[in-house]
Amino acid sequence: MQETKSVETEKSKGFDFKKFVGKMGPLLALIVLVILVTVLSPGFIQPNNLLNLLRQVSINAVIAFGMTFVILTGGIDLSVGSILALTGAVTATLLTTGISPIIALLAGIALGSLLGFVNGLLIAYGKAAPFIATLATMTIFRGATYVFTNGNPITGAKMNDSFMFQFMGRGYLLGIPFPIFIMAVVYLVLYLLLHKTTFGRKTYALGGNENAAFIAGVKTKMVTIWIYTISGLMAAIAGIILTSRLSSAQPDAGTSYEMDAIAAVVLGGTSLAGGKGRIFGTLIGALIIGTLNNGMNLLGISSFYQQIVKGIVIIIAVLLDRKSNDK
């Protein structure tokens, strides 16, 4: 024990290349990827394409930011795609009634939080395994969306009358698509929450060792519930962006979005075992996935192959991560 410790001490005096790669690996991977795509398809680096890419990334990134908290506690939230669909449908329906768009948006966000809260209750007090609990609610919320929409897309003149609602997904501010601002604000808020507040400290503690956290005075159940609530809230925000972007709410919207969000978190270096990771990594992870999608589209690679490539990239990332963790 002591022996190995002294070895590490010795090492960390100099520049620790492995540690550096471990920390900066995702960012390096993104840079390499950007260079590669730019070489293959120079149009990639055009400002318009980059803004377009960021807008495409924003939905997944917002969900993945919430997912980061969940995964940091050692949990998982499979229900985010269904929450996105249900909140989008409810928001859109409210808008078609001509209700104030502010109320409609707040209602969507409140509903997303509530659905996340239910996940949290099941996991904290029902002691259900997160995977199973959210697998179940994923189906329930998806089913509820179909029931609520009757399986039809929701759209309507009144919905598209609202400038404010339209702006969420399609607006531009200073020439930059508005969803990018939403993503940036969400990132900033959650970054502060995770790294600068006691809630963030407690999230890491809970993920690192639930028993020790509890004995050190962390209300582990409350923290768990809040974290799933945040995840639901993020899914609702993403749902609003998507619904606005499409000018309609699709009952099958957000299908398999949980996978992209989990992939972004894992690519960003957050440990699925909990306790280790950073939200900056998730941002990079989401950008890697976005760059892959965008780049492959530019190169005219079929979406069938795109899926295979994405999967392979995730496997490589995980294998590299294992290696750097194993010393």
Partner: peptide, 27 residues
């Protein structure tokens, strides 16, 4: 039960007292 092994000494030591280190909502 005593330690969060993956966390720093600092974060371990401060955990039970962490609520006392908040200024304007931030640590």
């Amino acid at each position: 039960e005593g330690l969060i092994l993956a966390d720093s000494l600092r974060d371990n030591i401060a955990l039970p007292s962490i609520n006392g280190f908040v200024k304007h909502g931030l640590i």
